[in-house]
Design a protein around this nucleic acid. Structure first.
Lengths: 332, 332
DNA sequence: CTGAAAGCGCTAACAA
DNA sequence: TTGTTAGCGCTTTCAG
């Protein structure tokens, strides 16, 4: 049986209230008594119950993180930013993977609400109407990452996917490429869609014929899709909606005996750790994932403390990183 | 103000107890009343407070995961296994990164105990004496991953690092290599140490001169260390203590205009996702990270339910994967 | 089949 | 400066 505050109180010959006071660093406790209490705590190996405290104060120091898949190399850095910020602010962090399943998403949101988390960082790209209604009916603060929802008032921290893609494609165009293919991510993922539109507009403005292959945000998908893209379109350049796709495509290009960037130049997106390890080094759009995480938690904390001044969308800066796969400027 | 069980009770014209019964799927509630309660719940957007429930039942459905760094590509898969198993068993999961800092480790363990988690999965390679004492004084079930502690009774799920390394090195020896270097991980990390010993024994038995370079478990470390290893030892083969090191080493080898596996054959360890994306594909020792996670949670669950039959060490199977960097047998 | 009431471990007035 | 006491929201006997 774990010791409770009462056991400590008895052993230290004081009341529960006094023990509670030293627990909460209330200064007005006589030094001598404080010592006694501390000693009792030590001797019993007592740990206060956060649960009981939370119930008594009707607030908790827990927040939740719901994301698609920690196994996708983009997320660990983001998650780390969130976790570091959370701990710095004194929160414990719940985590759940949804695999982009809206049903699971709702289930986990409810679970966390039931756990009485003070707020949730939600990384979801596929919020359907039902989930949004759900969210709106919650009394729990929420901050979104990588996604906005029209007609709602959730804080969000984002990057400008459209512009990032637009810039990347224009970089390729600037190098004289005319046959630039695009490996797109799932159409129901907002960032994938925005990137696709950036690609499309850049191509359109340059009067170039676009070619899009839609797939998953995965290495395997890049590998498989690139085959038919090459056969059907003979691209000299590629803009991939994320680095995993880009890396898969590169592998396929190599397997066909072609080389990067000579035969096909490539620009990816995300700047996952492995893009700095591949051969050749992947040129990509760098997204400040860690900072996004930190910012999200700060927004959440503001909301939880009631400091929030209405719904905020924070747009983080992206940056096109010229490494080796895009040819041209070589300023790695 | 969030609705409580009392609000639901009033609205449904029943007592708290009855609401509690339908919440807990107690079968002996008249269908009609159950409907009324359910409707009231719906209308109020009521979510039961896990906190209050936990206090009342004096047990929680939360468990904790403490690991070094989710950003290290070995861990996301392990974490995913843990999370999936946890959710399947109805647990919510706390997560904390320690960066291998013993102080942080203890801090997080205490925090989780205070949160009243039912158990903790601890992935720590550097448990110092103080932490072990700490752990022993806890009344919270703990399962270790990738590490045993002498004279303690914690369940652990492991792989045989010594044997894995021994086999990998012998594979290299079998291919005729005589100058096989080893990139070791931090000496205070048990698995790194075991792998180093496996390397050492294999070399010794074959009467070969070993060469070890100790560093961090990182890509950058591999990159930097490999330079001097080449200069000082001129290896024709390398066994790296993990894949990140192997990948870094490979990059350095390429930068010097040499090739893999022709000039230097490489075997890594962990089989992180990137090892299937590198060029050439990395030969490595595959560790069933996901399964390790699942198993750890099962052991924890057993302990929490009191089904545990004494301290258990579960050894998972590793497997040497011949891909492209080790030359010889090419059975990718 | 349903209600009343005690209590989980702690905090927070209010007294003393 | 310390103690007393009433809850926080829920579960769980025990009656009815």
């Amino acid at each position: 049986m774990k010791p409770t505050i009462l056991h400590v109180a008895e052993r230290a010959q004081v009341s529960k209230a006094t023990v509670s006071r030293v627990l909460n660093r209330n200064p007005q406790v006589k030094e001598e008594i404080k010592e006694r209490v501390l000693q009792a705590i030590e001797e019993l190996g007592y740990h206060p119950s956060a649960i009981a405290r939370n119930l008594a104060t009707s607030r908790t120091n827990m927040i939740g993180l719901i994301l698609p898949d920690i196994t996708n190399p983009y997320f660990p850095v983001l998650a780390r930013g969130i976790e570091d910020a959370a701990h710095r602010l004194g929160y414990a962090l719940f985590i759940s993977n949804t695999d982009n399943d809206p049903k699971l998403e709702r289930e986990y949101i409810h679970k966390m609400v039931e756990q009485q988390v003070g707020g949730i960082v939600l990384i979801s790209s596929i919020l359907d109407e039902e989930t949004v209604n759900d969210l709106n009916s919650l009394r729990t603060p929420i901050v979104l990452c990588d996604r906005v929802i029209a007609n709602t008032s959730f804080d969000a921290v984002l990057i400008d996917d459209y512009k990032a893609a637009y810039e990347a494609v224009n970089c390729l165009i600037g190098q004289g490429h005319t046959r630039i293919a695009h490996l797109a991510g799932p159409k129901d993922i907002q960032s994938a869609d925005n990137r696709k539109n950036g690609y499309l507009d850049a191509m359109r403005e340059a009067n170039l014929e676009p070619f899009i292959s839609v797939g998953e945000f995965s290495y395997e998908s890049g590998l498989h899709q690139m085959g038919s893209v090459i056969d059907e379109y003979h691209p000299t350049a590629l803009f991939a909606s994320n680095d995993l796709l880009a890396l898969g495509a590169m592998q396929e290009i190599h397997r066909r005996g072609m080389s990067v960037p000579e035969d096909v130049a490539i620009i990816g997106c995300d700047d996952i750790p492995f893009s700095r390890m591949s051969r050749p080094l992947l040129s990509t759009i760098s997204i400040p994932a860690y900072q996004i995480g930190v910012t999200a938690v700060q927004l959440l904390d503001d909301q939880m403390k009631g400091v929030s001044s209405g719904a905020k969308n924070v747009i983080m800066e992206h940056k096109l990183i010229h490494r080796e796969t895009c040819g041209g400027v070589d300023q790695k």
